Structure formats: structure tokens, C-alpha cells
Computed example of a mutant assay.
Amino acid sequence: MEPAGRVLSIAITTGEPAGVGPELTVAALAQAAERWPGVTFSVLADRDLMTERAGASAWLSGSALIEIEHHALSVPAKAGTLDAANGRYVLGLLDTAIDGAMSGRFDAIVTAPLQKSTINDAGVPFTGHTEYLAERTHTPRVVMMLAGSGERPLRVALATTHLPLKDVSAALTVDGIVDTLDIIHRDLKAMFGLPQPRILVTGLNPHAGENGYLGREEIDVITPALVRAREMGIDAPGPYPADTLFQPRYLKDADCVLAMFHDQGLPVLKYATFGEGINVTLGLPIIRTSVDHGTALDLAGTGRADAGSLIAAIDTAVAMARHRRAA
């Protein structure tokens, strides 16, 4: 329980209305009183949509710590069927959450999955949650990190995010990798309570370049970045071949792995944790966590979607907010 006058407030954006976000929010918050006592939740959504997906109008009864902040859909939403007319509605939920977190109204935001194509089809260029959060908070560099659960969870952060593979090498710079490691180091200390995080760093090429035979990025960019990072007091060994790094004997003493590109690290993470993993955006002035899956249009409205990832995302948001408050 939070101390008197210091109750945490968490905003939940319910994401794409045709997807599983609304019903997963209902399922997750059914555990709110028991799992997160003393924490208040603001569900940003269309109230009628939430009632429909809950299957009963009284899903909030008896829980004064949960409220729906009503945002009207542009057009009625049908489970499993996308409609670009609701693209700006989805973006509006995210804007409200960001503004509330920046003003101090919310201690953290948790985002259910959205559909990038719907927002783009509504006429708004949109790459993803991570990039949009960086732009709206005027943050020059953010880091995408996915994580599992447990006493020592597997965490994988990315040096580059949503880039074509052909553009990754050019996007890797010494300064960029150093800045990324600094963000991971600082946020793992401040919001995860890790006094001296150990961050294992992959190479880019097969066998980490094999001494330049399979590529020079390790020699020219990654290794110089790690030398500089260690001079700053960051525990960042590497670069390691990515095909052998993800083994218990290496990971047992690691707090995070920094992978060079999206599909280098995330397939391993998602294989190990899917359904219970989460996405965290590091480097922001606000706390943001999310699920590790998409809108699952085929499951929307069926009652078969698993809320485990959203529950884990809320768990982490609450824990991060408490660590930040105590720091």
C-alpha cells in the first residue's frame, strides 16, 4: 500500500478498438484490488466499448480505484475489423496519457497494442509507440527494451529499432551505442533498483565479425563504444557473437543484453517469454510499459486472448514508479 497522499496513478491506453486491448484491460484490472492495492488506474477508452467487451456493465463495481476516462470512438468498433476512421481516436488516447504523465497527473502509462496501419490510413504518419513517445516528449534518444519476468528476468534492449536490415550498419555509431548504454545503465539503476547493471553487448555480424573477416563494425564501431562506456563506469562487456550469447552460463550474471537490431535479440526474448513478456521504453522523462504482442485481431471479442503480458506490464510500471519515487 502506498503511503497516505502518495497513491500511484497509472494510465492505461486501450489501443486499437478492433483488437484485444479493451478486453485484456478488463481481464487484467479484474485483479487490481488484490494485485495492486492502493494504486489508482485511469482507463482511457470509449466507455460503451469497454462495457461491450466486458460483457457486463458493472465490471468496475466495487473498485473505486479504477475509472474510465471516456474518449468517444469516431465510429462504432467491431471486434476483428479495422476502421481507419478510429485511427485518430487511438492516437488521442496516447496523447492524453503522455500529457498526463508529463504533467505529473500519471506516474506511469501502460499501453495496449495499437495498429500502425490504421493510424497511417487515417492520414497520420506513424512508425510506432516508441518513436512517437520520443517525439512527443522531445527526447532525442530512447531505447526499446523487452523483458521477461521472474527474479532475474531476461532483458533485451536494442541499439536500433524499426529499420530495414540494409540500413542497420549505417545507423550504428560509436556515440549512438555509448548513449544507448548510458540510458540503459541509468534507467536500470533508477527504476529497476539495480545498483550496478551488467549489460552484455552483441556484435552485428556472424561470429561478431571474426576479427574483421566477416565485417568490421565490431572493430570500428562497437568495440570503441564499449571502451568509452567502460571508462564512464558502465559494465558493458562484449561484443559477443549473438548466436552463442543467449545461454544460461552467460546470462546468469547479466541484467540486460544490448542487441544491435530488432530481429537479432527479440526472437530469442519472445520465444522465452511470449505471453508474459513486456516492452519498456527507456530514456523517456516518463514511465511507459507495454505488452509484447500485437492487436491479435483474430482473437478480439472471442474471450480467448491471454492477459498475462498486460498484467506483467502493469506489474512493471507499478514497480518502476515506486523505484523512481524512492530514489
Rank of each mutant, 00 (worst) to 15 (best):
49 L>Y: 03
50 M>S: 02
51 T>F: 05
52 E>I: 09
52 E>M: 14
53 R>N: 08
53 R>M: 12
53 R>D: 01
53 R>K: 07
54 A>Y: 05
54 A>S: 12
54 A>I: 09
55 G>S: 09
56 A>V: 14
56 A>F: 12
56 A>S: 13
57 S>G: 15
57 S>L: 08
58 A>K: 15
60 L>M: 14
60 L>H: 02
61 S>I: 07
61 S>K: 10
63 S>P: 00
64 A>K: 09
66 I>S: 01
66 I>A: 03
66 I>F: 00
68 I>D: 00
69 E>V: 12
71 H>C: 12
72 A>G: 08
73 L>Q: 03
73 L>G: 00
73 L>R: 06
74 S>P: 01
75 V>I: 03
75 V>E: 07
76 P>T: 00
77 A>M: 06
77 A>P: 01
79 A>P: 04
79 A>F: 00
80 G>K: 07
81 T>L: 07
82 L>P: 02
82 L>F: 01
83 D>C: 10
83 D>E: 09
84 A>W: 02
85 A>Q: 09
85 A>V: 05
86 N>A: 01
87 G>F: 03
87 G>H: 04
87 G>E: 06
88 R>D: 10
89 Y>M: 01
89 Y>K: 01
91 L>Y: 10
91 L>P: 06
92 G>M: 08
93 L>G: 10
94 L>N: 09
94 L>T: 08
95 D>C: 03
95 D>F: 04
95 D>L: 05
96 T>I: 12
98 I>Q: 05
99 D>F: 04
100 G>D: 11
101 A>M: 11
103 S>R: 10
104 G>N: 07
104 G>P: 06
104 G>Q: 09
105 R>C: 08
105 R>T: 13
106 F>S: 03
106 F>W: 13
107 D>K: 01
107 D>G: 12
107 D>H: 14
107 D>P: 00
108 A>M: 06
109 I>E: 02
110 V>M: 04
110 V>Q: 12
110 V>C: 07
110 V>F: 11
